[in-house]
């Protein structure tokens, strides 16, 4: 019996493959992923392009079929999607025919877990939490990219999931908005007290947000290394200019570069 608490999320030897129609062959995408995330932790996943990061997140959400190994949430194996997890997709994918408030409460509506009045109260709270008070009745096309991503995050948080899965949520935003959103996300997650798994291509984003960064190898992916981010708990954008931050950045960059080199995907550094 271990004394350590059960991790919020634990992947054990997770394997996933897809049959590729074009080359008539089965491709292994994930080749035994071992990763655990403790309650209240934010872990970022980085890795070479196309290494299977999104596939992994899909498996944790219960959207992608698992071929081997398993994913445990609070010690229970994932078989399908559940209200204990919520996904924030890269494209904000807000329903254009729903207002901000109606988008935010979508998950609650689907899970039918509250009365209509409670649902709308909860929706309003979340709209306020992500800093969009006053925009409840706007339609998505009336909002900027950053605002839409806030709504997207609020929508994922609304059914009160314990684990938030974020798949490159800020990739489509301009550099400046992205940095503001990183700060905002930390604030939101702190206030909402959530555990989160975050995929990104941006190494600085990964370091800035996480407690630990998991570096995936090239496909078929395994966890190459888990980097502890020994930066102060309180994060501010100034941190990005400190030596320790830059050292971590260089270190993780080297890890990814090694992997890209293996598959001939080396990019200029």
């Amino acid at each position: 019996m271990s004394i350590a608490p059960t991790p919020k999320m634990q992947a054990r030897g997770l394997r996933i493959g897809f049959y590729n129609e074009r080359i008539k062959k089965r491709l292994n995408v994930l080749d035994g992923i071992d990763l655990s995330v403790a309650e209240g932790e934010l872990v970022c996943i980085v890795g070479p392009s196309g290494c299977g990061k999104s596939t992994f997140l899909g498996a944790v959400d219960g959207l992608t079929r698992i071929d081997g190994g398993d994913v445990l949430i609070d010690g229970h194996a994932v078989t399908t999607t559940g209200p204990d997890r919520a996904m924030v997709f890269q494209h904000d994918s807000l329903f254009p025919w729903r207002t901000v408030l109606q988008n935010v409460v979508y998950g609650i509506e689907i899970q039918n877990s509250m009365s209509k009045a409670d649902m709308n109260d909860r929706g309003r709270q979340l709209v306020e939490l992500v800093g969009l008070k006053g925009f409840e009745d706007h339609f998505p096309h009336e909002l900027s990219g950053g605002m839409r991503q806030r709504v997207n995050i609020a929508r994922a948080l609304a059914p009160d999931p314990e684990l938030l899965l974020l798949d490159e949520p800020f990739a489509a935003l301009d550099a400046q908005t992205r940095e503001f959103m990183q700060v905002e996300l930390l604030k939101i997650l702190n206030r909402a007290k959530k555990t989160a798994l975050f995929i990104t291509h941006q190494i600085d984003e990964a370091i800035f947000l996480s407690n630990r960064v998991a570096v995936f190898s090239a496909r078929p992916a395994r966890v190459k290394e888990i980097v502890e981010i020994d930066l102060p708990k309180e994060r501010s954008l100034a941190l990005k200019h400190e030596t320790r931050f830059r050292d971590l950045q260089a270190y993780i960059w080297r890890l990814i570069e090694e992997e890209s080199a293996r598959t001939g995907l080396v990019t200029a550094s």
Partner: peptide
């Protein structure tokens, strides 16, 4: 995908 993710 969004709808499925919420368990629709």
């Amino acid at each position: 995908k969004v709808a499925r993710s919420f368990g629709a």
